[in-house]
């Protein structure tokens, strides 16, 4: 199983849109920076078809140090959750179908 990286995405922009290598690399970089900046400003990101990046505030809860067993509180925190959009879910479902055919 391979992994898609920023370099692969830049390569695609170079091949398909004719951006030069520098422009393609910068665009991919900016794309993820913008999403990250929005989330860091506590603003949800909605990319229709692909999915939504939501923010959830978690309250402090009791936890344990797994090594020592000591009780230590897990502080209140804000976390990112991703909810896939319908189009992405449908496309991934199609993958499950191809897997069951070959299984």
């Amino acid at each position: 199983m391979s992994s898609l990286t920023k370099a692969d995405m830049a390569e695609r922009l170079y091949d398909e849109l004719g951006l030069n290598k520098r422009e393609a690399k910068d665009m991919v970089e900016s794309f993820f920076d913008e999403i990250r900046e929005s989330l860091a400003a506590n603003e949800q990101v909605k990319l229709s078809g692909f999915g939504n990046f939501d923010l959830r505030d978690k309250r402090q809860r009791p936890g344990r140090n797994p090594k020592t067993g000591d009780e230590v509180p897990i502080s209140a925190r804000r976390v990112v959750t991703f909810r896939p959009g319908q189009k992405l879910k449908d496309r991934v479902d199609a993958y499950a179908d191809t897997r069951s055919e070959t299984a």
């Binding site: 199983m1 391979s2 992994s3 898609l4 990286t5 920023k6 692969d8 995405m9 695609r12 922009l13 398909e16 849109l17 951006l19 665009m27 991919v28 794309f31 993820f32 990319l47 078809g49 692909f50 189009k87 992405l88 496309r91 991934v92 199609a94 993958y95 897997r99």
Partner: peptide
């Protein structure tokens, strides 16, 4: 076009069972 291409590329990868690592 670039935004569309990037989201399509990511969707395609997951639809092929590949991971995305950024």
């Amino acid at each position: 076009l670039a935004v569309k291409a990037m989201l399509d590329h990511m969707t395609e990868s997951l639809a092929n069972g590949d991971r995305i690592e950024i």
